[in-house]
Amino acid sequence: MLKTENIRIDKVNSHVTLNFNMDMYNYHAILQASKEFTENFWVAVYGSRNDKIIINLKPKPEFINDVDLEELGYEFYNYTLGLMHET
């Protein structure tokens, strides 16, 4: 398992886990990004809304071999920040 501060990659189970500090990120933007990612990925949202929301992303079977999990994690962070900037 590769581990950075905010992105944890589990290559065995092909999923990536992200930590969102709720002092920095907006709940609405996280939920909107999650919804948009559900098209190609399995997304799980858990944790605490006041402290830290955790996002777990796993590519759907048809994309599982084409996705770089680390890039996917950073892409999700970027997308969420983009949504926060829009609102």
Partner: peptide, 23 residues
């Protein structure tokens, strides 16, 4: 255990834990 899920393959059920403040 995977993310917010607990999977019991032997007894064929999944438990999903959700925070009511999020959902």
């Amino acid at each position: 255990k995977l993310a917010n899920m607990e999977l019991n393959e032997d007894e064929n059920y999944a438990i999903i834990s959700l925070n009511p403040a999020i959902f």
